[in-house]
Design a protein around this nucleic acid. Structure first.
Lengths: 98, 98
DNA sequence: TATTTAACTTTGAAAAACAAAGCACTTTTA
DNA sequence: TAAAAGTGCTTTGTTTTTCAAAGTTAAATA
């Protein structure tokens, strides 16, 4: 037997980051506010988790405008997609014994 | 849309507790030392996570002897099995959109 | 008798999570 | 046009969580 949790990505231990990633896998772009409302978080809390994800190059920020109003959106990177998939695979492998 | 992480159990945010549970789902009983070696943890660290799981009534301790030597083993409870399954279902639901 | 092993508990430090407040800017509302 | 509100943060400080290390008790082994 080998350590069943060794292949889990530490970044995805967080339910919030897991939630962000799962939303970004199915939506090309999501706004800060949408994420905030969906995950029911405070600004600061969300911002810091997004920051962790950005540092890891798992997501990318897009600063733009809707008309003349600022709008920040996020999207997943290729690396992020890969890492997330690897994490899910590890999770699945861990529990497939069920 | 609804909050995708609302149904995840906070207790299973921890990779270690996740690992313990996944091992206990497939093995009726596992010893302290086996868990420790498998998950590569220090005594104190493992003990405290087991304690969290026990407080939640997700696992049960069995203190016994092998000969006259103490031997502690752990097993999953019905509640634990249910909670773990619910967590995995929530996880699956969250990512099934893939 | 000295050391080792098992299974912890206690202590304390480091890291992570989080809420609240502040901020710069813009837009909307009164 | 002045006040209020929204966007997307950063900063600050508290609380929670994680974890390793050391101490502990009792039995086993050398």
């Amino acid at each position: 037997m080998k350590n069943p949790i060794a292949d889990l990505n530490k970044i995805f231990d967080s339910r919030i980051r897991l939630g962000v990633m799962s939303m970004l896998v199915v939506n090309d772009e999501i706004g800060f506010n949408d994420l905030k409302q969906m995950l029911e978080l405070t600004d600061g809390n969300l911002a810091s988790h997004l920051n962790t994800l950005e540092q890891a190059d798992f997501i990318k920020v897009h600063k733009g405008f809707i008309g003349r109003k600022t709008s920040t959106t996020y999207s997943i990177t290729a690396l992020g997609k890969q890492a997330f998939k690897a994490h899910l695979d590890a999770l699945e492998k861990m529990i497939r014994k069920l």
